[in-house]
């Protein structure tokens, strides 16, 4: 399958501290989970993919768009859900999504339809006119997803989307992410191997800014797709037993 995102020679430093080193990566349609311990470089990779961080060295291409040269068009084809952010509680869900659609350059004539489609995708159509302040925590997260897909992005970047959710809402969100990945690339940062087992097609494992693994889930686990299999493979990778 053709790659949606191509990463070449990507490196990033915070001052003198190297956060990512010479990363080469192909991201295909479907869900790609980014795994790694704290300080592995997951947030930096997602920051660079989402253009929240400026590329210092290397290149990221989304289809034919270079994230540095074609920044505006690249961003227009991108959806992003940060790990934490506060929704404007005094707006209704539809108002917030309308504002986001404007920020994502959705043409005025298409904005209402785009908002409706996003609401349908996250199953919040009946809450379109509800104030965000009156939504539950799980619904907040779905509104967060909706704002990330309101522009029908080719690349959807989700930073720890299931953190803080109870088991039921986590299951719902996994299903949602799976659904959203049918026609786009979804990059999900997580430290929960259950998430990876449930939704990931491909896995990227990072440690200390270095790519330890990039491939399909079955390649990582040697065929197993349960969380325990992923745990074992992950431990083996991060403890230096396997490198590829």
């Amino acid at each position: 399958m053709n790659s949606v995102v191509t990463v070449r020679g990507l490196a990033h430093r915070y001052g003198r501290y190297p956060a990512l080193e010479r990363l080469d990566l192909e991201i295909r349609p479907g869900v790609t989970a980014v795994l790694g311990p704290n300080g592995a470089g997951k947030s930096t990779l997602l920051g660079l993919l989402s253009t929240g961080l400026t590329v210092q060295c290397g290149q990221i291409r989304l289809d034919e768009l270079d994230s540095r040269r074609d920044t505006t068009r690249y961003r227009a084809a991108l959806g992003f859900l940060p790990q934490t952010f506060t929704l404007p509680t005094n707006l209704t869900v539809a108002e917030f999504l309308t504002l986001t659609a404007w920020h994502r350059l959705v043409p005025r004539a298409e904005r209402a339809l785009a908002v409706r489609a996003a609401l349908e995708a996250v199953d919040l159509l009946d809450r379109a006119d509800t104030k965000i302040s009156r939504l539950s925590g799980g619904m907040h997260r779905r509104v967060g997803i909706a704002q990330a897909i309101v522009n029908q992005p080719r690349l959807l970047v989700l930073d720890e989307p299931t953190v803080g959710l109870d088991p039921r809402h986590r299951r719902e969100l996994r299903t949602l992410v799976r659904t959203l990945s049918t026609d786009r690339a979804v990059v999900v940062s997580t430290h929960l191997t259950e998430d990876v087992a449930a939704i990931a097609d491909d896995v990227v494992v990072l440690d200390e800014g270095t790519l330890l693994f990039a491939g399909s889930l079955t390649e990582l686990t040697g065929g197993g797709i349960e969380a325990a299999d992923i745990d074992a493979a992950y431990d083996a990778l991060t403890m230096g037993e396997v490198r590829r």
Binding site: G52, T72, L78, H103, R104, L105
Partner: peptide
Amino acid sequence: RLGTALLYRTYPRSPLAS
């Protein structure tokens, strides 16, 4: 204040327009 600065940086709309 709301922690959305990172999200705003990823928007294609020009910072001036925002």
